[in-house]
């Protein structure tokens, strides 16, 4: 299912889309595939695969740690594409989130081509702003990959408009000024940001990320956003589990709780 179809379907069901994030290759390639399929089966509408990177400046301690583990275990860019292939073949809608340098190194057009071939529908770029994205925009058009750029509470209306004009699929609204990671309470800046986005483009689906960790928070965000993006809390299920079976069970349970949350708007 494309991102547009996923958001349209959720809208027709009067609920939000649940986007669950997991780093590729964490802790190993096969285990990360198993985790992502479990998240999909337990109710994540979209699997956001994060490409592990040595210098993830937008990420808090949980994703940093998971990325470090994946890299220490030798995960490569081509493994990430293999993982996307496996997870999309299992029926999940997959988007990739990656810092820019690994794509630049791979070759921008070649990456868009191989990403599409692997079955991903979109790419989220946390450190690529539209101002620097001419090459990516052309490659994404050529290979029909949706582009998700980020907007933040600090973004001016002019920048929100520029970003929306270059997004396709959905826009990623960072709920607060900070890095990824679950917070005790949902940011109060998020509803205002979503309102400002809708005032500029009422059609573009808005996914809200940063700080959501449980079903109640998912429901709170689902009340005003088209999509709820959860990363660190899901990753922690695996990171903190004493053994693998418990980790997977906790991951399924939290995915199901979040999926229930986005239906409780």
């Amino acid at each position: 299912m494309s991102i547009a179809e996923t958001f349209a379907k959720a809208k027709s069901e009067n609920r939000s889309v649940l986007v669950g994030c997991m780093p590729a290759g964490f802790p190993t390639v096969d285990h990360s595939i198993e985790q992502m399929i479990a998240m999909h089966e337990a109710g994540c509408d979209v699997i956001e695969v994060e490409l592990p990177y040595s210098d993830p400046v937008m990420d808090g301690p949980v994703i940093q740690k998971a990325s470090d583990i994946a890299l220490a275990n030798g995960v490569r860019t081509r493994d990430t594409l293999k993982i996307i292939d496996a997870v999309s073949s299992a029926g999940a809608t997959v988007v990739l989130m990656t810092y820019w340098n690994p794509i630049e190194k791979y070759g921008v057009d070649a990456f868009a081509r191989d990403l599409a071939a692997a079955g991903a529908t979109g790419l989220i770029t946390p450190d690529l702003i539209p101002d620097e994205a001419a090459e990516w925009i052309a490659a994404a058009d050529a290979h029909k990959i949706d582009r998700t750029f980020l907007v933040a509470p600090s973004s001016t209306d002019e920048r929100i408009a520029l970003t929306l004009a270059n997004c396709r699929g959905f826009v990623y609204a960072t709920a607060l000024m900070g890095v990824t990671g679950a917070r005790k309470t949902v940011s109060s800046q998020a509803p205002d940001l979503v309102r400002r986005i809708r005032a500029i483009d009422p059609e573009m689906p808005v996914g809200v990320g940063l700080g959501v960790g449980n079903g109640a928070q998912a429901a709170e965000v689902a009340a005003f956003a088209d999509g709820v993006i959860v990363g660190s809390a899901l990753i922690r299920c695996v990171l903190e589990a004493p053994e693998r079976a418990t980790g997977l069970a906790n991951l399924r349970a939290l995915s199901a709780e979040l999926a229930e949350g986005v239906r409780r708007r």
Partner: peptide, 20 residues
């Protein structure tokens, strides 16, 4: 004006920092 020295430089940062 956007900080490019030929193909180098520029801004590859999270949008949250652009305003600052």
């Amino acid at each position: 004006l956007a900080g490019h020295f030929g193909r180098y430089g520029g801004r590859f940062v999270p949008e949250a920092l652009v305003k600052a």
